[in-house]
């Protein structure tokens, strides 16, 4: 079924042309352009990924409130439809750009490139890119971010990292959100979730927090400030 060849060759009047190119190379090249722009302007970009309803936007809102006056913040919102999330961010006087992917299930580097041109983030700022709520597709697409962060709510159960390993495998940071609900979650073991995250990706940094009640937010915000100090 497959044939070995190192160079172009001919047989039966047909030509085998060696291509050897990454299918995602167009996206990856654009992602590297974004990355170069971010590095040149000392912008720290985070790609926030999770399933729908894990609290990404609530986490962003609370993070913005706490970082106000300490770092300039910009937000790119990715959703299939509506500008609801961007509206929530602009209500906090933070520049936000909504990308509607239509039928698309993830953000791609070209969309971020386009959004960044609209936002024009200032030097030394934090750029949050909130990906489309989906634990599968966003894992494959580099956007040019400095770090990928996966958010998982305590209500999602302990085995999410094992069911969707690709996205956790890519994440430099993993945030366990909604810790305020722990007393109501019968049989849920946060340590087990933590163990599963680290089993899939032993290098990831785990934060436990409640965006709505504020627990654990200080450590997360301090970490963000440290990231933008360099």
């Amino acid at each position: 079924m497959c044939y070995a060849h190192d160079h172009n060759h001919h047989h039966d009047g047909q030509t085998v042309l060696t291509v050897e190119q990454d299918i995602l190379q167009h996206n990856n090249l654009l992602a590297e352009r974004n990355r170069g722009y971010f590095e040149a302007k000392n912008i720290y970009a985070l790609n926030l990924m999770s399933s729908p309803g894990s609290g990404k936007t609530s986490l962003l809102e609370e993070t913005i409130r706490r970082l106000k006056g300490r770092r300039p913040v910009y937000v790119i919102e990715g959703d299939q439809q509506t500008s609801n999330d961007a509206d929530r961010i602009t209500a906090l006087s933070v520049p936000a750009y909504q990308v509607n992917t239509g039928m698309g299930c993830h953000l791609e580097a070209g969309m971020v490139n386009h959004a960044v041109k609209h936002l024009s983030p200032s030097e030394g700022s934090l750029l949050f890119i909130e990906n489309v709520g989906n634990l599968v597709c966003p894992a494959l697409f580099d956007l040019g971010e400095a770090v990928k962060a996966v958010i998982v709510g305590t209500t999602e159960g302990e085995d999410k990292p094992l069911k969707y390993p690709n996205i956790f495998h890519e994440a430099g940071v993993c945030i366990i959100n909604k810790t305020d609900l722990l007393p109501y979650l019968c049989g849920f073991d946060i340590q087990k979730l933590r163990d599963n995250i680290l089993r899939v990706n032993p290098r990831t940094q785990v934060f436990e927090l409640s965006a709505t009640r504020g627990d654990g937010m200080d450590a997360w915000c301090e970490w963000l400030l440290e990231c933008t100090n360099t």
Partner: peptide
């Protein structure tokens, strides 16, 4: 668990056969 994936994440167009 400190295992690095060295193969198996490929997504590549390897070759084209043409007349």
């Amino acid at each position: 668990c400190a295992v690095r994936v060295v193969k198996g994440k490929e997504l590549r167009v390897k070759s084209i056969l043409s007349n």
